[in-house]
Simulated assay, not measured.
Amino acid sequence: MSRPARAIEEPRRRRGLFSWFFTVVGIVVALSLVVGGFYVWRLWSTASDIERTNTLLPAGDADRPAADAAVAGSFNYVLMGSDSRGDGDRGRSDVLMLAHVPPTRDKVYIVSFPRDMWVEIPGRGQAKINAAYAYGGEELATRTLESLVGVRMDHAAKIDFEGFTGLTTELGGVTVTNKHASNVGEYRWPKGKVTIQGEEALTYVRQRHGLPNGDLDRAERQRAVVKAILVKMLTLDVLANPVKFNEVMGQFGKHFTVDEGLTNQMIFSTATSMKVRGGDDIVILQAPISGFGTSGDGQSIDIVNEGQLDEMAHAVRTGKMADYAAKYQDQPLAGGR
């Protein structure tokens, strides 16, 4: 009679093992759902905290590129940063960039427009591009950018100085390759890799005096820091650390302003459609400059390379920025290849 007893006991032991296994799996799944739920909540909360306004994009369709001027499936954002320090001061657009994503969604092309570019500002005539912000705020800055590339901006985002410094601080600093040794006040940056954050990062991206190409070197630094921020946010140090992730997302929510059309649903829809996997998929470029000059009223200006700008604008409209970037990514900041 002993055999039947053992035969009965074995299935019980197996059921115990199976029960233990599925209990552990259930706990892991539950924890994953809790953690995943936290990330979803944090992202949604951040998106909800972002200030929205109707002043970033031009109102109506008058004198704007057609809504279908760009190839279907691509999208274009204008990114702005103002040098205003508050107290009612509008300031000028210290940072003006185009973020272009092709229909494949596997790349982000960030093109900066140096603030001394001498361009046609709609309704105002020729001036430095950053004057558009002073003349007509974000709306005119966006309209000026649209007129240069012949594409309507789908959305717009603006960050203030406090947000910029706070973001680099929450990330624990960002590392960039510094092409030219320089210093400003107490800060000194040797040639090579430097890690910056907070007020130092802000000082670094604002410096122009003491750099060989002045405004163009400043714009290059801005592009490098923007990319470094994006790359740092994609690292496991941030994504796998709920506390760090929460702190960084909090900075986004407090200091970014976007257009009213960039709803939470739009942000999530865009984010889930992206196929960017790392820093190599974020390509930074400068709007083409042929050299330097002086305006009729004595201002030092950056002269636009009109032919290459037309080529870039065509690449944005047709989703061919990969070809444009391959051709021009390594050219000097000013002049030909």
Rank of each mutant, 00 (worst) to 15 (best):
M1C: 05
A5D: 08
F18M: 12
F21R: 04
S32D: 11
V34D: 05
V34N: 07
V35H: 02
W41E: 01
R42D: 12
R42T: 10
T46M: 15
T46W: 05
N54K: 11
D61Q: 10
P65S: 14
S74R: 04
V78L: 13
S84M: 03
V95Y: 11
H100T: 07
V101K: 00
V111R: 00
Y133D: 03
E138R: 12
E139V: 06
T144V: 07
S147P: 01
D154G: 12
A157D: 00
F164A: 07
V176L: 02
N178E: 03
H180I: 08
V184S: 14
G185K: 04
W189V: 11
G192T: 09
T195V: 05
V205G: 06
H209R: 14
L216Y: 02
D217Q: 12
A219I: 05
R223F: 00
K227H: 11
K227G: 03
T235H: 02
D237W: 02
D237I: 01
N241I: 06
G250P: 09
G250A: 09
G250T: 05
K254I: 07
T257N: 10
G261D: 08
I267D: 00
F268Y: 14
F268R: 02
S290A: 10
F292T: 13
D297E: 13
I303M: 12
V304Q: 11
V304T: 15
G307P: 14
R317H: 03
T318M: 07
G319Q: 11
A325R: 08
L333T: 13
G336T: 07
